[in-house]
Computed example of a mutant assay.
Amino acid sequence: MTQRVELATVMDRLAVDAVITGYAVAVDDADWTAYEALFTPDGRADYRSAGGIEGPAGEVAGWLAETLTVFPVRQHLIVNRRLRLEDLNGDTGDRAELQADYLNPMFLEQPGRPAGAPAPNFVTGGRYAFELLRSEEGAWRVRRVTVHEKWRRTGPHAL
């Protein structure tokens, strides 16, 4: 591999990492405009394993916006990222696959709970499978994300 190809690969890895981090931040901050901007025009999301829906990113963003209102505090931790960039004749390609584990503690809104006591009471864990494409402008975008929820805990001591 030439030094130029190695540098391009490093830059692609950093750019994909920024997209995945942006995904977590957009969901946690309820920034649905930013969420949709992370996807290709035909991008899709599949949350069925976690009790959700599957569909176009815009439709799923609307569902998330409505569903997550009961969780005023949430934080996605996306770790153990395994990235595979498509290789085209020794050069990085325009497609990537990324699998990453996640831990997602959330605080379920409870009327009457004392202020300042937001202990996580709903935690899920699992794995994301992302398929990403490079846009014509050169930016990486999510073509598909699939959530594979493996476990969930609820209650006052969910963590």
Rank of each mutant, 00 (worst) to 15 (best):
L85I: 15
D17S: 13
E86Y: 04
M106Q: 15
D42Y: 03
N80L: 09
E131D: 14
R127P: 01
V147L: 13
D101G: 12
V60P: 04
P41E: 01
L14F: 10
T154C: 09
E109I: 03
R44A: 15
V147T: 14
G116A: 02
E66V: 04
G93C: 02
R153Q: 13
R153Y: 10
V27P: 05
I20C: 07
W32R: 03
R13W: 02
D31M: 06
I78C: 07
L85E: 06
A115K: 09
D101N: 14
T154W: 02
M106W: 04
A15I: 05
M11Q: 12
F122M: 13
G51T: 09
P41F: 01
A34W: 05
V79E: 04
G155A: 08
R113D: 03
E86L: 13
V70L: 13
L133H: 15
V73I: 11
H148N: 15
L85V: 13
A158L: 09
A158R: 09
R13V: 04
A119C: 11
P72C: 01
E109T: 05
A139P: 01
M11P: 02
V70S: 14
R152S: 13
R95F: 11
A100W: 07
G51A: 06
T67E: 11
V142F: 05
R82P: 02
E66G: 10
V10D: 09
V79D: 07
R152T: 14
D17Y: 02
T146C: 08
V123Y: 10
E136M: 07
P118G: 01
T40A: 08
A15D: 04
T92Q: 11
R74L: 10
G43P: 00
G22K: 07
M1Q: 11
L108T: 14
P111N: 04
A37L: 09
F130E: 02
E86V: 12
G125S: 13
I20D: 00
R82D: 08
R144H: 14
A8L: 15
A18P: 00
N80I: 00
S135R: 02
A8G: 00
A30S: 14
R127L: 00
F71H: 08
G52K: 06
I78D: 03
T40K: 02
E97S: 07
A117M: 11
T69Y: 02
L77V: 10
R82A: 13
F71S: 05
E149I: 11
N89G: 15
